[in-house]
Write a protein that binds this DNA or RNA. Structure first.
Lengths: 218, 218
DNA sequence: ACTTGTGAACTGTTTCACAGCA
DNA sequence: TGCTGTGAAACAGTTCACAAGT
C-alpha cells in the first residue's frame, strides 16, 4: 500500500491536475484512459504520469490503460479528499470572503465553518453557510469544532499570531495567504501562497521575453 | 549585465522573497545585510542566496555583505517591478474583485484599469479606481489602453476564450486563476495559479503526517 | 499489439567548500 | 578577518527505453 517514500511537491501538484482531468474524462463518458492521453490533457509526458502514479501503487493494466473511475477514486484518496475537512478562514477581508465562497473548496470536502475578524463591523455577516465571528473566539471555536485546517488571509503583521492560536487549538494544517513567513511546529503542515509572488514571476517572464525578442545577449 | 542564462522558476520566486525581506530590513534602518542574514529571514541557506543573486550580477562586497538599498533596487529591476504594468481583471466575481483590490498588486506597479464580466448586473460597479465593463469591450479596451497583463478569474469554461481575446489585443502576459489549462503562443508569458491545488497539497501533507505519527510503513 | 511499471541515464538544482578580495 | 562568488560534488527530478503483462 501507500509507501511513505518521500514524494516531491511537484508530484503532489500533478496529482491534483490528474484528478481534475479524470473528472472531465469521466463526465465525457470514457471509462478507460492511457498515460499518453492523461499526459496530453495535462501538458506532460506519459512517462511522468506513470512515474507519478507508480509512487502510490499499480493502478493500470498493461496493454489497456487505467480505469477512469478507479483511478479517480485512488487519486482522491491519496490526496486525502475522501473525507470532510472542517476549516476556518481568518481575515474576512476581500480575499478571505472570496476564499470562503470559492466553489472548488467545498467540492473537495473543505467545509468552512466560520470566518474570524477583529473588525466588529464585520461580525455577524454571512458568506454562504459561514458567519463572521470575533477573532477572540477563534481558539475556543477551533478547539470545540475540531477544526483541521486554518486558512489565513490576514495582513502580514497578524499572521504569526493567528497561526499560533490555530496551533494552540490543535489544528493540523495551515494555508497561509498573508505575505509573511510563519513558523509552525513539525506536526503542523504549512503551505504558503503569495499572490504577489505569482504576479512578480509573470512580470519577470515578460521582461525576459522582451529581451529575447530584441536580441538580448546570448 | 543581466545575462539570459535560463533562470529557474524557484530562483525567481525566491527573488520575490528577497525583495520583501529587503524592504523590511530597510524599514528597520539597516543599511547592510549578509547572505547569511538574508537566508535566515527567508528560511534558506546562505549559499542559496548567493547563488541566486550571482545569476544576475555581483551585488555584494566581499567581507562586508550587500548594500540593502542597492540590492533592493537591483532585485526590483530584475523582476521588472521598476515600471508600471497596465492590467485588467476578467471575471468580476468574488475572486476577481478581491484581486483587484489586493494591496500588494498596486504596490508593485500593477495598475488594474478595469474589470470585465458578462453579467450586466455588475457593469458599472467600481472596485477602487477600476470599473466593471461588459466582456464584449475587453479586446478593444485592452488594445486601446495598451494593457500588458490580463488576470483571468473566470469559470474554467470561459478561460481559453478570454485568453484568446487578450492575446488578440496584444497582451504580454496572463495570470490564470481559472482551474483550466490555457494555451498561449510562445511570445505570451503565462502563469497558472490554482487555489484548489494548494489546499489539496495541504490535505495530502496532513494525511501523510498522520500516517507518520501512527508509525506507518517507513 | 499495446501500454504499464521501472531501472538507468540524463538534466537540473542545491549544497559544499574554498579561493579571492575588501 | 569576514563574507562573497563560484567551481565541484551531491542530490533530486525527469526522461528514456525496454522487459513484462494482458
Amino acid at each position: 500500500m501507500s509507501s511513505l517514500r518521500k514524494v516531491s511537491d511537484s508530484t503532489v501538484r500533478r496529482l491534483s491536475l490528474y484528478l481534475r482531468i479524470l473528472r472531465q474524462i469521466r463526465a465525457r463518458g470514457e471509462t478507460t484512459i492511457s498515460s499518453e492521453q492523461l499526459a496530453d490533457e495535462g501538458g506532460l509526458t506519459s512517462a511522468q504520469v506513470r512515474k507519478d502514479l507508480s509512487f502510490f501503487g499499480n493502478f493500470g493494466v498493461r496493454g489497456r490503460g487505467y480505469d477512469v473511475v478507479a483511478l479517480e477514486q485512488a487519486v482522491q484518496s491519496i490526496l486525502g479528499l475522501d473525507r470532510v475537512w472542517p476549516a476556518v478562514v481568518v481575515g474576512a477581508g476581500r480575499l478571505g470572503s472570496a476564499l470562503t465562497a470559492y466553489p472548488d473548496f467545498a467540492r473537495q470536502g473543505f467545509r468552512i465553518l466560520a470566518l474570524f475578524d477583529t473588525d466588529p463591523a464585520k461580525h455577524g455577516r454571512r458568506f454562504g453557510d459561514a458567519e463572521v465571528l470575533p477573532l477572540s473566539e477563534l481558539e475556543s471555536f477551533a478547539r470545540r469544532e475540531r477544526v483541521s485546517i486554518g486558512i489565513v488571509a490576514t495582513p502580514a503583521a497578524a499572521a504569526q499570531d493567528v497561526a499560533n492560536q490555530l496551533i494552540g487549538a490543535g489544528i493540523l494544517g495551515i494555508l497561509n495567504f498573508a505575505p509573511a513567513r510563519i513558523e509552525v511546529p513539525p506536526h503542523v503542515s504549512l503551505r504558503q501562497v503569495n499572490l504577489a509572488v505569482e504576479l512578480e514571476g509573470l512580470s519577470f517572464a515578460i521582461v525576459g521575453a522582451g529581451q529575447r525578442a530584441n536580441g538580448g545577449t546570448r
